[in-house]
Design a binder for these strands. Structure first.
Lengths: 209, 209
DNA sequence: CCAAGAGCTGAACTGTGGTTCACTCCTTGG
DNA sequence: CCAAGGAGTGAACCACAGTTCAGCTCTTGG
């Protein structure tokens, strides 16, 4: 016997894998899944087509990982935006912060947001999308539940509210996100949607005294 | 010269076309777009594969028409549910009626609803889907605008509210609609979502006095 | 320096459907 | 009854990605 994988080669291997994922991510973020053909990903990563298959069993697995990472990143950012407010902050304000983060980030990276939210994807990735939405819903869910406990919000089906919020945000963005959509005023969009979200949880534009 | 298409042949031709559309509709409603391969559609319609192409320039066109008809049907039903209430009915109630119709119909024909709302489709059909959503939004939009005029609802960005409502309904149904989703209690779902919709437009569970 | 083994290469392969087209079958007007 | 022309047929075609694999290159331990 003679050759044994060592840290160095291992690292090199990991780096290649990373380049592949990165390349796929860039392509998706720039042109949607349409652009993320295996050959294109390989070319952009500077490897041969076959190499992709030394790191991923199939295209679906690769895209699933790309999707998972990107969505995780988004969810983390939104969660951070919510948690940046102290735990004593009213639920309505925390939801507003989450919604605003969601919207602004989506408008910043429109193509990626479209890919994450609405672009047709193959079933394997679609499953990941469900998880993505659930993760967002979980954030809102926690905040709303907390608000109810503290008596700030009226009783409601928490997970239903959360899911509906995610849907409302996503749908209201689909127009503005679509590649050819005219971009309306960002601040107005944020203001309008935040107001919607707040009404929908508090039951009033300003919390009922 | 000798042969001229006449009413009879014209009718026959239209009937064939109709059978093709109908077959495609059934396949989509039963198994999603996945099942609606051209060969399968043709077989179900009792014609040869090539015949499909004597009536539609491409599969995309066929599916677009199928989608358009189905969605039109759904939109009409919901609009009817809203308009069944007299014009004097409070906006909140009319929105509730629309939402309930939307939800109940979706749960009734789950596969079709999934196909209309969320299933990955090719770009041509996706465009039709946008129109479908806009049509729903238009219904809510009109009602909300009316409610504002009459002083029942607080000022708000009407089309934004409408889009958000459509998104909220769709998203809250995606879980329950997905082929493998556990079906929760229908009435509870309706009640919860209707409450959400009402809060989101009125700003309170019961209009603030 | 060499043998062994792992990673990499990229041209060739493959499987899946949408699409085509040469042909047959009907219908119509003369 | 016949010529003209459209409807219908379905097997063959084709395009396109994803996937494979025989050969090559590089790294490692002796």
């Amino acid at each position: 016997m003679a050759y044994r994988p060592t840290q160095r080669t291992e690292a090199r291997r990991a780096a290649t894998r990373e380049r592949i994922v990165g390349a796929a991510h860039e392509l998706v973020a720039r042109g949607g899944y349409r652009e993320a053909a295996v050959a294109a990903v390989a070319a952009r990563a500077g490897v041969a087509t076959g190499t992709v298959y030394r790191h991923f069993p199939s295209k679906a697995e690769l895209l699933t990982e790309v999707f998972r990472r990107a969505s995780q990143h988004e969810v983390d950012a939104t969660r951070a935006a919510v948690e940046a407010l102290g735990p004593g902050t009213p639920a309505a304000e925390r939801v507003a912060a989450g919604a605003e983060s969601f919207i602004r980030r989506a408008l910043r990276g429109r193509r990626l947001a479209w890919a994450l939210l609405a672009e047709p994807v193959d079933p394997a990735v679609e499953a990941e999308r469900l998880a993505f939405r659930r993760a967002y819903a979980a954030i809102f869910s926690a905040v709303v539940a907390d608000g109810i406990t503290r008596g700030e919000l009226p009783a409601q089906d928490v997970s239903l509210t959360a899911a509906a919020l995610v849907g409302a945000l996503g749908e209201a963005l689909v127009g503005p996100l679509s590649p050819v959509g005219a971009r309306p005023d960002e601040d107005a969009l944020v203001a309008g949607l935040v107001a919607f979200c707040q009404r929908s949880i508090t039951g009033s534009p300003e919390p009922c005294p």
